[in-house]
Amino acid sequence: MIALCDIISNEKMTEEYNIYSMIIDAPLIAKIAKPGQFVHVKCGGLTLRRPISIASAKNGQIKICYDVRGEGTKWLSGLKSGGKIDINGPIGKGFDVSDTSKKVLLAGGGIGIYPLYSVAEAYGENAFAVLGFRTKDIITFEKEFKECGSKLYIATDDGSYGRKGFAIDTVKEILDNNKIDIIMTCGPKIMMKGIALEAQKRNIRCQVSMEERMACGIGACLACVCKIKDANVGDGVLDVPFTNKRVCIDGPVFDIFDGSGVDWEW
């Protein structure tokens, strides 16, 4: 649904980097939003809306967190509390939170940590969360993930905070020492690929949140396609060809079962 909503707050989260957190009063969207879904945000006079994940939805409000990359997100960063924002959502298929007694491993990189936050809220102490960042100054949401009860591990590429190295190294360690029922990942493609292939090796179900440039955000234009194998949970990945799936409404989260379910080279 498209709604013109009140902005409660819009604040920068880090000193050094332009990452913002915006709270929006959106009762109808907040009520039905599921972890992993996104809103398609109108950005001033730009032709296309911009997809931003719903990081959290409660008490009639949603929180979105975004990195200023270009014109659209720059425009968003200029919005002030008390102003209005035009959003379409919630859109897409989210992560599986139907049985939160399962042990879940959340692996997020960069801006990919935000959609995982609402999953962490749902799973509480049953979640292990591995968050990867380039460097210390860019770290956000450490406190938030801890407060949900997640067992939290932070890795930085340059070792300036937490564990040095990529998230995948920590993910392997956790998998070696714990029984994990399902892995959920969102972040750079290269990171998700590594994690999904690790899931495959260990025969653990895996859900990935894909990212592609979008235009309509409602499934009509076929801009944001990726190549996915249709697999049913429990069947494992079938010996079927890849088919085009729309990230906006067939995803962004795909239950690929394991790493072979995505054509990573597409």
Partner: peptide, 9 residues
């Protein structure tokens, strides 16, 4: 169809 990205503002 083509490979992505398929659109640009």
């Amino acid at each position: 169809g083509n490979k992505t990205p398929r659109v640009a503002e």
